[in-house]
Amino acid sequence: MGTFFDLFTDVAGLWQKYSSQYLSGAWSTIKLAVIATAVGCIIGLACGILQTIPHAKTDNPVKRVLLTVLRAVIRVYVEVFRGTPMILQAVFIYFAVPYFTKNAVRLEMVPAAYLVVSINTGAYMAETVRGGILSIDVGQTEGAKSIGMNHFQTMLYVVLPQTLRNILPQIANNLIINIKDTSVMFIIGYSELFAVHKGITGATYKYFPSAVIAMIIYLIMTIVCSALLRLWENKMDGPENFDIATTDTLAHTSGMINYPNKKKKNGAKRRRLALGDLR
């Protein structure tokens, strides 16, 4: 029991002295993870739209060449950034810029960290989105085309919203992976939670107690994120049941009014009807 008591006092002592550093480290971590995941998603969605542009043998040669080059570029991007460690990518990009510009241009470490994590996530998301798009029934695309939508509109209004819903669990995965894996950004001096932990242990030699604090903070961040994303999933699914709308004036007194042309503010109560009630 004595050891646990010691641990408790050590942890409490560390927290009392360094809590603001831990918290600012955690804030840097979450900021980097959330923003890089969001940017990565946008990169992934863009790659998804570009990769699925329909191509036919009857297209003019310029368009065909452009599309082929585009696909090849995306392919190379995905393979390179999925196939190398992020810690190495960080070093690679951080030092490549000054190397090629003979030290004229230097990357700041903060933008470099955001850049590396974003394009790394983007590479994974590109494949996730591609799979997500393929999973949407071709009928959805045909329905959209049949009312005159072009490829871009079809993607934006019909396919991608459904894709996004389907890949949300994978986005949550990526966000959680990023929260943890951004710790490798200490290599280029980005001071997130793990770097803070390293700094504090360097000054206090209290390796284990500090690791306990870092573990708990990481866990809290990932659990909160995963809960929030689940909430978002539920929100996207919409309600189980729907409102009946009616123009029948007799029905208005029953409170079953939610007709779009009437003003919503007229105080009419909306009655939720379960699907079972209708049949």
């Binding site: 009928g139 049949s146 459904q162």
Partner: peptide, 20 residues
């Protein structure tokens, strides 16, 4: 094609309503 299709409607066997 898109402009032409907006003049020619289509109803499918499998409905193809937008699920979202």
């Amino acid at each position: 094609a898109p402009k032409y299709r907006s003049h020619v409607g289509m109803v499918f066997q499998s409905f193809n309503l937008f699920n979202n």
